[in-house]
Amino acid sequence: MNIYIKNLVVITIVLSSILTNAQMKTNLALPDDMKAPYLTQITTFGQRCDWSLDGKKLIFLEKTFGDVYEVEVATGELTPLTHHYFHEGYTRALYLSNGDILLSGSKTFDAKDPWKSRHPDNAELWVLKRDLSGPPTPLGVFCKEGPTASRKQLKIAWTVDDIYISDIVYENGVPRLKQIDTIVRSQDLPKEVKNWRLETQNFRPPFDEELIFNAHYPSIEYEAEVMGINLKTKNIVNYSQRPDCYDEPEGIFPDGKHILVESTRHHPKRAEGHTTWDYIDLYKLALDGSGKMERITYFNKDLKYKATNPVVSDDGKFMAFQYSVVGETTGIGHGIIIWDFEKEKEVKQ
């Protein structure tokens, strides 16, 4: 990379940060919960983050249909990962177990009709090499909402209507899907959620023998359940057990015993003029079949903000998430926040 490009990248990052800070200070008052001593806002823009396997970095989207960045947790230093080629923007970015990056994004983008780029007819999966030696390689499949990637092996799962799974293999350095298998179909779900729509979420650690997914359907409000399927026996379990609420699984803890959930249990019925997603806060759900839930955040208490899209570091010590403003569409974020679980325990002793 020549000095001109390096300087241009630095200028772009600085200007982006300045403009975003100015917008936040002018238009947004931070939620009261942000003042907790165990919370640190590491970026002033961005959404849908994912932890690196060593817990030293976070990858995130600049915005929906934007570029992908990486931030070093210790220093806050930003690195753009998708500035070295032209593209139409991304909707997801996840680390693969070898350090490469799984992307979801469309080959086309229309500013007059942007959301069609997020539709499974258009959003494709790609692999970007960790060394940023070129543009990403398409995997030849489409994806609804977010895929998931194993933290231990080169295996991914994704949804269109059904949920699919495949290993990623490299031939002469080029990634491809080895064999695509169908794991879950909506008609295979238990009676109480039969034919509900599906969305992939997590391979359950520590053994990756179960896939956690979301079943959702707008029958009354916009119900969603946290589900799991054993990849060997194909047995399906409903973990949240509240079809009258919106419980969407997000980041899973490394021991596999709990998962973070975006939930509306504190406000299960929406008011006129609001969407279900206006009432989201973060909860911790036990994956032992008990359905036990514990509320973690209270960003939504005054119906101004919501905490969303949490992920847990592989050592279980930190949660990274974003805060959003009530009224915004799903996935929108105004910066990445880190929650230090150990510091929280010290403060609350």
Rank of each mutant, 00 (worst) to 15 (best):
I5D: 13
K6V: 11
K6G: 06
V10H: 12
I13H: 05
V14D: 12
L15C: 13
L19S: 12
L19D: 10
T20H: 14
A22D: 06
A22F: 12
N27H: 14
A29R: 14
L30Y: 14
P31F: 09
P31A: 11
Q41K: 14
T43C: 06
Q47H: 07
C49D: 13
D50W: 06
S52C: 07
S52Y: 04
D54P: 04
F60Q: 00
K63T: 05
T64V: 09
F65Q: 05
V68C: 00
V71I: 15
V73M: 06
T75E: 08
G76P: 06
G76I: 09
P80F: 03
T82M: 05
H83S: 13
F86W: 12
E88K: 15
G89E: 04
Y90A: 00
Y95L: 06
S97L: 09
N98A: 04
D100R: 00
K107Q: 13
F109Q: 05
D113I: 13
S117V: 03
H119L: 09
H119E: 11
N122I: 01
E124I: 04
E124R: 13
E124D: 10
L132N: 04
L132D: 03
P136W: 04
P138V: 08
F142N: 14
K144N: 11
E145V: 11
L154V: 10
K155T: 14
D161G: 05
D162E: 09
I165L: 15
V169N: 08
Y170R: 08
Y170E: 11
V174C: 09
P175L: 08
P175K: 07
R176M: 15
K178A: 13
I180Q: 11
D181V: 10
V184P: 00
V184Y: 02
V184M: 05
V184D: 01
S186T: 08
D188H: 10
D188C: 06
V193Y: 02
V193P: 00
W196H: 08
N202D: 05
F203Q: 00
P205S: 05
P206T: 11
E210W: 02
A215N: 05
P218Q: 08
S219P: 02
I220R: 13
I220D: 10
I220E: 11
I220M: 10
V226N: 00
N235Y: 14
V237G: 01
N238E: 12
S240A: 07
C245P: 00
Y246C: 08
D247Q: 02
F253V: 07
K257Q: 15
I259T: 04
S263M: 05
R265F: 04
K269H: 12
A271C: 10
E272Y: 09
G273S: 10
T276C: 07
D278A: 09
L282A: 04
L285C: 05
A286M: 10
D288Q: 10
S290P: 05
T297D: 04
K306Q: 14
V312F: 01
D314C: 08
M319Y: 03
F321C: 04
F321H: 04
S324N: 14
V325E: 06
T330I: 15
I332W: 03
G333R: 02
H334C: 04
H334V: 07
H334P: 03
D340T: 07
E342W: 06
E342D: 15
E344S: 05
E346N: 10
E346G: 01
V347I: 14
V347A: 12
K348D: 10
K348L: 15
Q349T: 15
